[in-house]
Amino acid sequence: MVRVEKTKTRKGKRVLDDRAPKTIENDKKALFLKGNKTNEIINHAMMDLYDLKKPLAAKMDRHNPFHLFEDETVIERWGSKFDASLFVMGSNSKKRPNLLTFGRLHDGQLLDMAELRITAYQSASNFEVSKMTLGSKPCVVLEGSEFESDPDMKRIGNLFVDWFRGPTVSKVRLEGLETVIVFTAGKDEVLMRVYRTQLKKSSTATPRVELLEMGPSLNFALMRRKLADTSLFKEACKKPAALIAKRRKNLSEDVFGNQLARVHLGKQNTDAIQTRKVKALRDTPLVDDNEAEEDHGSDDEPMESD
């Protein structure tokens, strides 16, 4: 049974209108949760991830006895309450130490979820590099053949891109690209590194780009995962009909984004084309062959003398 939310205030009505389905959805917000128990590593790691996601993030400080792989309705209810389609929950126990569970929701239900165990961690405070500007859009890079060959790793890589891509923008200028987040896949492990870009002078118009690690630095071991089936994932990736560009006839695009068009012209009458009036292009009268011979013969007759 779907609960119909009603409000009596204008502010509440604006909130419901903002959460209503749209052709172009709002930027995805992440919800940070703590499990029943956490430790210093989990708290600092979640704080570093929270700094990367601000302002599209909401952090809960209380501990919650959630077991997401046993009961997923809890995170679905919290995602609907805080209008967040992304979430991460940190927990620590004797059997499962230093765990971060990343996940995402679609249409109010769980789509993908992956449990990662932190095997190595360096906080962003250990790197003496200027940090990420609030609200900037990072560049997310996936390295490793596992992101292409393994179906589960391919879905987890898509989860990371969806989680860290930041706000949706139409264009990004070179000076505005400040942060690069790199995920390197190995056998049952993922390495996360965050870099700060620096533009240096070069002999060409394009500057030389250098990367300085600014943290956090995390090594993850893949534990449990819960991924959506193919039909649900295709439904989540489906675009509204209003956003699908209509295909124009005889118009194509190459790999560089250049548009190539084919134009069909009818038969042209070249006789009616106005050309430049030059002596060589003027029409000369046609002369009959007999008349030409008579004229030639008259020239050969000797002239009579008086």
Rank of each mutant, 00 (worst) to 15 (best):
F87C: 03
S145Y: 03
L52H: 01
E178P: 06
D306M: 12
A280K: 07
M132A: 12
F66E: 07
S125I: 14
E253A: 11
K239S: 06
K22T: 08
R247F: 10
L286K: 15
F69N: 11
T270H: 05
E178F: 07
G12V: 10
P240W: 10
T204E: 05
S203W: 07
F127H: 10
N258G: 03
T275S: 04
F183L: 01
V74I: 14
L243Q: 05
D150Y: 00
L105W: 00
G35C: 13
D18A: 15
T23W: 06
E235I: 09
K187T: 13
R224M: 11
S149D: 12
E178R: 11
I42R: 02
T119P: 07
P216F: 04
M223P: 01
S80L: 11
E304R: 04
T7Y: 12
K22M: 14
S123F: 03
F32C: 08
L222S: 04
N36V: 07
K81Q: 12
S91K: 01
E301F: 15
W78K: 15
R14V: 13
I75F: 02
P21I: 14
F66G: 08
D152F: 08
L191P: 00
T204R: 14
A261F: 12
F66W: 15
T101W: 03
N219D: 11
F66D: 09
Q109C: 05
V2H: 12
F233E: 14
R165I: 08
D61M: 12
I156C: 02
G103L: 02
R225K: 07
P285N: 07
Q198E: 09
E72Y: 15
E70C: 13
I156D: 00
S130R: 08
P65I: 07
G144M: 03
K201S: 14
N26F: 05
V161K: 11
R104P: 02
K13E: 15
R262E: 14
R62I: 06
